[in-house]
């Protein structure tokens, strides 16, 4: 009984996912996608274009299977995931903490706001050389870069959400005797949560961007490094495997986030927080 229920839920979810990618009538969407793959395959095999430069989908699929079978791809993915996770955790924690502090304490706001605004204007990728110079080409510079990229979207949204809490709520809570941390935990944070969630969702996208940027400059393992290495040995098919892996990772991050949101905080309406991440 519960097995059929679970199966039905799975079916519904797969269908929703298909709709999200392929559009409303997804049989036709899948057909369009299939046509694209066939076109790509035939262009690559036609001889107009050097097949080394544009490997056919079948070649890319075979390379992907090889990379998975040898365990190489898993290692790249795992080291990328670990870096992204550490950077994301540090960056979002700092963004959250600083956002709350700056919205609640005017002194901290006056002190830090100009600094944060200056850094926000500079594209985060431009810090890659500086981070390498300061922290070397090891793990630390990569994690710092990812944390840096994650920090800003989380900070902005936490700050705005916390600052613009409906004064009616806080007055009502105050008249019921809430103060200090109680006010923060039970009122300010829940009220700001939709903003914070939107910020975290954007930050997931920027984490991926900075992950790739920092891995392109040199690493021992990582999906970005796989792409960089394959460029040096001219294996465009491996580069495509790397690109597809990155796309899948980006998609899975977002999907897992939305699913988690729907499960744990269903009342916030994940669909409304459509993020337009910085890629």
């Amino acid at each position: 009984m519960s097995a059929t229920l679970a199966l039905n839920a799975l079916k519904a979810r797969t269908r929703a996912l298909g709709k999200q990618i392929l559009g409303q009538n997804f049989q036709l969407g899948a057909l369009g996608l299939l046509a694209f793959v066939v076109l790509w395959e035939s262009v690559s095999r036609s001889g107009w274009i050097n097949p080394i430069m544009l490997p056919a989908p079948s070649v890319v699929a075979r390379s992907a299977v090889d990379l998975i079978a040898s365990g190489e791809l898993i290692r790249h993915v795992l080291s990328s995931l670990w870096r992204a996770f550490l950077g994301f955790a540090i960056g979002s924690f700092l963004g959250l903490a600083l956002g709350i502090l700056m919205a609640r304490l005017p002194g901290v706001h006056c002190l830090l706001n100009p600094l944060v605004q200056i850094f926000r204007a500079i594209p985060s990728l431009a810090f890659v050389p500086l981070a390498i110079f300061w922290f070397g080409i090891g793990e630390i510079s990569k994690i710092v870069l990812i944390a840096f990229g994650v920090f800003f979207p989380v900070w902005v949204n936490t700050y705005l959400g916390t600052r613009d809490t409906n004064p009616l709520f806080s007055r009502a809570a105050a008249s019921l005797g809430a103060r200090g941390w109680r006010m923060l935990i039970f009122l300010i944070l829940p009220a700001a949560l939709p903003f914070i969630i939107a910020g975290v969702r954007i930050a997931l996208g920027s984490a991926l961007v900075l992950l790739v940027a920092s891995e392109l400059t040199g690493a021992q393992f990582g999906v970005g490094y796989l792409i960089q290495l394959s460029q040096q040995v001219f294996r465009v098919d491996h580069m495509f495997v790397g690109l597809i892996t990155l796309g899948l990772l980006g998609f899975l991050f977002d999907y897992a986030f939305v699913c988690g949101l729907r499960k744990f905080l269903p009342w916030y309406g994940a669909e409304n927080g459509q993020a337009n991440g910085t890629r």
């Binding site: 009538n25 057909l31 369009g32 996208g205 392109l216 690109l243 990155l246 796309g247």
Partner: peptide, 23 residues
Amino acid sequence: FSIGLNPLFNLLRPIPAIALVPV
């Protein structure tokens, strides 16, 4: 056009553009 192109673009969107620099 929307039937033919939207799925493709939706699949391309999660790939960070910087990863295309080496390509």
